[in-house]
Amino acid sequence: MSTATLDKPGSGSQQDASPYITVVFRIRRFNPEVSDEATWQDFQVEIDPKERVLDGLHKIKWDLDGSLTFRRSCAHGICGSDAMRINGKNRLACKTLIKDINPHKPITVEPIKGLTVLKDLVVDMDPFFQAYRDVMPFLITKGNEPTRERLQSAEDRERFDDTTKCILCAACTSSCPVFWNDGQYFGPAAIVNAHRFIFDSRDEAGEQRLEILNDKDGVWRCRTTFNCTDACPRGIEVTKAIQEVKRALITRRF
């Protein structure tokens, strides 16, 4: 025994009531190799309510049905792989605890909407990343580079802090009714990433990005439903960022 975590004798936890409860996961299944139709399937899982929805999905995949398919990686809300629709709301499965979503009723899990479902909870992310690439999501500057770093005041750095937090999970974009109805709309995530550069004092291509977003499929399609802000697992004020881009388009000040 090399570590003390496992060999503490006389632990009281044996007598404690089991933390485990039985939870039903109602999962939207789709496997085009088997059927063209998506169906709901229920799984019963013994789980500690302090665990994550992702833990529940793993229990199903590892112990009940290996064919259940979803993306995941870091399991703590940083990599953006496991955005899904849980009880009708877009969330990260790894950042949603069972206890916080009423485990006494079946927990529904579906793929995020507006992107083509490829299998079970896996959707085609390519259109999402294409919209991201379309806003030129990289720093553009003119003239010669300085030898040292570019200077930026702490206030100027703070100006775009909120939108630097984006992990490109698509929870916002796939919660947007405009995006559902019309795949042409850039969607909130792409606008968030444009905002991140438009309001970066070092960047010199704000006008170009604003023109891209002035397009008929750009920011003006936003209907301010705040779904995106509610969906963002990083707490980014997405709708506010979109409004700031709209205002910048009108005033040409940013």
């Binding site: 720093l139 770093e149 702490a154 750095r157 775009f160 070092r202």
Partner: peptide
């Protein structure tokens, strides 16, 4: 390596003087 990242756009926290 750090200066290259800053020039690529990395938003480092800043000092009062505006340096990294």
């Amino acid at each position: 390596a750090v200066l290259d990242l800053e020039k690529m756009g990395l938003p480092f926290n800043r000092t009062k003087d505006g340096t990294i």
